[in-house]
């Protein structure tokens, strides 16, 4: 089947690839793609069934994907095209030129993808922040990482970004993640009651996760026109990040109001002077 490097049938001594080989190469690439998709689908479906181990299982996806594509490329080069050392050097030179001229970004993405797979700055299922983008990682592909933002936007981030920007992962491969919930109260509020109620709102939330290593912290800080009550606690699944925050906040306020504790006057809260919500 293989005709690469054979002088007979080639023009001016250049190697040629016959139709059969070409079809085999295309078929192999299609098979690799289908196998990758099927494995991704099955692993994702299985991971959704196992609760807290979801992210651990999804971690296998990029490794499998890179392994399948890597092996396919190796098989095509070594077995079908029977590329010799000389041809490999020639190919390397051409590839170098191609990278130099226009494919350098693609190549950087590919290397970035490999680094993401092995160094694991983030994994599939993590909540990450890259530049201005924040969301849950859906897929780590050969070229790009895709995330879903809280507004349900599907954002594709080129893999090379990890070389140029800092990436923060809120849960580094765990299902649980810390959620910070702030409540702003007027000065003179009974802080003992307020702290108690906020703590109880956190511990009785159906989204909370508590353990020895995942404690709950309630912090108070005075600002010129209001008091900030901050609850730091973990949600049992990062997908409940916003549900947890909302649940704690709404239930806490319901009880705080019953005790006569009020938010600061609306005119006193200037959004531009508010501390960054992520400031911990």
């Amino acid at each position: 089947m293989t005709m690469v490097g054979e002088e007979s049938g080639s023009l001016s001594g250049m190697p040629s690839i016959d139709t059969g080989t070409l079809l085999s190469v295309i078929s192999l690439l299609i098979i690799a793609y289908v196998v990758t998709r099927v494995i991704s689908f099955l692993l994702t479906a299985f991971s959704e069934k196992v609760g807290k181990y979801r992210i651990k299982i999804k971690m296998l996806l990029p490794i499998l994907k890179f392994s399948i594509y890597g092996y396919t490329v190796y098989y095509i080069m070594a077995k079908l095209l029977e590329v010799s050392a000389q041809e490999l050097i020639l190919f390397g030179g051409l590839l170098g030129a191609a990278i130099g001229f226009g494919l350098k970004d693609l190549f950087a993405d590919l290397i970035g993808g490999i680094i993401i797979v092995f160094e694991k700055p983030y994994q599939i299922g993590d909540k990450i922040r890259v530049g201005d983008q924040y969301g849950e990682v859906n897929d780590i592909g050969i070229r790009a990482t895709t995330i879903t933002t809280p507004d349900d936007n599907y954002v594709s981030i080129p893999n090379y970004v990890i070389f140029t920007q800092s990436v923060s992962s809120a849960n580094i491969g765990n299902s649980e993640m810390m959620v910070v919930t702030d409540i702003f109260l007027e000065h003179g509020s009974d802080m003992k009651i307020a702290r108690k109620l906020l703590k109880e709102a956190v511990v009785t939330s159906r989204f909370v996760y508590m353990s020895e290593k995942h404690p709950i912290t309630i912090l108070t800080k005075d600002f010129p026109f209001y008091i900030r009550l901050r609850a730091k606690a973990y949600t049992r699944d990062l997908r409940y990040e916003f549900n947890f925050e909302s649940d704690v906040s709404s239930r806490a306020w319901k009880e705080l109001k019953k005790k006569g504790i009020k938010p600061p006057g609306a005119n006193l809260i200037d959004s531009s002077s508010m501390p960054d919500q992520r400031d911990r």
């Binding site: 109620l197 109880e200 009785t204 806490a252």
Partner: peptide, 15 residues
Amino acid sequence: IDNCHFLYRHKIGGF
């Protein structure tokens, strides 16, 4: 005292 888990309710103000 048997069944002390009935001494609290899983709600705000239940402790």
